[in-house]
């Protein structure tokens, strides 16, 4: 249901503007001013993703990854260069579920904002709840859910925003290793069934290699793209696949080289 809705929106947009569902950042610069000190977060960053592509962005912490996502979502403006993107939704690092809403109300927040009735919004979310193993927890409050479940609810909320571009900021960073692996498998499956353009920011190189079509390596601050590795590994991928392991090593080496400067 969500898929068809999205499809029709895609078609409508493609017809109207000849636009794609991709995104393009060209020579982007972003500076934060704190009193007298200037902090250059991004400088000369150029990056693009085609519609339906999963682009992972890895880099040392503090290299401006979250800033990059907020630029794409239109929450910040660049100080130089240009940012173009199809409508994008942000899934922040923390789940940020509203404690006064039930799980299903949180998940269907975007639909409520778009003016859909409470019951219609809940019905749309419930299908995804089943898929994500959240069935039966529709009416639970966020504090009653485990960290993994909260993150899944946040993910449903992101999907139901119905936007072609998903900006995921360390979506599984706060989870334990087992839950994280489960969520990665689930995300890979979900994207295979219902492709979206995904900008996945992570510090987990393995996660990037498992999920992405391409992996962009960012330099330490001020962040710019050092290298883009195409994964080209058939799906479904496994952690132990020699191609995955090899690419992970390459990416790690590129990160280490970048850190050395």
């Amino acid at each position: 249901m969500v898929g068809t809705e999205l499809q029709s929106r895609r078609v409508a947009r493609a017809q109207s503007a000849g636009d794609t569902d991709g995104l393009a950042l060209r020579d982007v610069r972003r500076v934060f001013v704190h009193g007298r000190t200037e902090l250059v977060a991004l400088d000369g960053l150029t990056l693009a993703a085609r519609g339906g592509e999963v682009l992972a962005v890895v880099g040392p912490s503090g290299c401006g990854k979250s800033t990059l996502l907020e630029l794409v979502c239109g929450l910040q403006r660049p100080d130089g260069g240009s940012v173009r993107s199809a409508p994008a939704v942000l899934m922040p690092q923390r789940d940020l579920l509203l404690p006064w809403l039930s799980a299903v109300e949180n998940a269907s927040l975007a639909l409520r904002i778009a003016g859909r009735s409470r019951s219609a919004a809940s019905t749309s979310a419930s299908a995804l709840f089943e898929e994500l193993g959240l069935d039966g927890f529709q009416d639970a409050r966020p504090h009653e859910l485990s960290g993994g479940m909260r993150q899944r609810v946040a993910f449903v909320r992101t999907l139901l925003a119905g936007k072609p571009v998903l900006c995921l900021d360390e979506p599984f960073g706060a989870l334990d290793a087992i839950t994280r692996a489960e969520m990665q498998d689930w995300l890979a499956g979900a994207l295979a069934r219902e492709p979206r353009t995904v900008l996945l920011v992570t510090h987990d190189v393995e996660e990037a290699v498992l999920l992405a079509d391409r992996v962009a390596i960012l330099s330490p601050r001020p962040g710019r793209v050092l290298d883009v590795l195409a994964t080209e590994i058939p799906r479904p991928r496994t952690r132990t696949d020699p191609a995955v392991v090899g690419l992970r090593e390459r990416a790690l080496r590129a990160l280490a080289d970048g850190a050395r400067g």
Partner: peptide, 11 residues
């Protein structure tokens, strides 16, 4: 952060 989230959901 909550404000930003609501903004990207078009509130």
């Amino acid at each position: 952060e909550q404000r930003k989230l609501l903004r990207t959901l078009d509130a």
